[in-house]
Design a protein around this nucleic acid. Sequence first.
DNA 1: AATACAGTTTATAATGGTTCTAAACAACTG
DNA 2: CAGTTGTTTAGAACCATTATAAACTGTATT
Lengths: 132, 132
Amino acid sequence: MKYIDKLRNSGLRPTKQRLQICEVLFNTQKTFHFTINELEQKIKNKVENKISLATIYNTVHAFEKKGYLKQIPVNSNQTYFDTNITDHHHFYNLKDGKLIDLENSDVGPINIKRKIDGKKIKSIEVLVKLED
Amino acid sequence: MKYIDKLRNSGLRPTKQRLQICEVLFNTQKTFHFTINELEQKIKNKVENKISLATIYNTVHAFEKKGYLKQIPVNSNQTYFDTNITDHHHFYNLKDGKLIDLENSDVGPINIKRKIDGKKIKSIEVLVKLED
DNA sequence: AATACAGTTTATAATGGTTCTAAACAACTG
DNA sequence: CAGTTGTTTAGAACCATTATAAACTGTATT
Ligand SMILES: [Mn+2]
Ligand SMILES: [Mn+2]
Ligand SMILES: [Zn+2]
Ligand SMILES: [Zn+2]
């Protein structure tokens, strides 16, 4: 019930797999960051039936396209996603590859003074790499 | 002669291949951004002998480690490198996958107010995604 | 409820950037 | 020069991601 309308309104059929993935991604107090690998594990733990890896990829990309997930630009061999879709920035801990949200008050507004004509800004993302 | 000392002082032997790659990367007025693929093509055009792909990867990583190249965090299936090793930020044109340098005066200083204890900031990078 | 259709899931193969391997080779040192 | 260590190389391996195409499911229509 909770996610059926959300999916229907997005033009996505509320399948069993999508609803289960919604539970894992969105039915939590805190938002979080994940790789597909990590999400796969989480799903294995929380969902009784198996969901194929292809479906996990398909669903994550569908949700990203609909704006329910964001991709975070990080240098890594894996793609990082975020269930926090508000504008915000990140610490990236190089030691363990974990991301930490930076509140906007922790960074202050970023003012891009230069313009490229014919182009508009889609997003502004700050990545702060951390080392020991 | 030009790059021999630079390499020797870094503890890297000035081999024919490394010197040739130095020419391609550093013997230019303007700095530039590249993927390994693009660099491979550039080398094919400018260098008469063949340099193996493994050597290109090895050399780029060696130069990155020594601080002669920077990696730029972008969501892409390929890694982006930069011969401009000063602190600066980027526009990323989603249409063609090209990067454009933002001068520091175009962005202003980024002030990270939050601290993570036991960690220090290695870099602060702003990526501005552009769409039509 | 049965039917039809488009959308979805799935196992599996393919792709492609990157890294590994180990043998040949080249730069340095004494 | 000889010995040593670092480097190059072709090719294999790796592995995250995407493509394939057949089975399945949600939904609208009768
Ligand atoms: Mn995507
Ligand atoms: Mn690297
Ligand atoms: Zn976040
Ligand atoms: Zn740059």
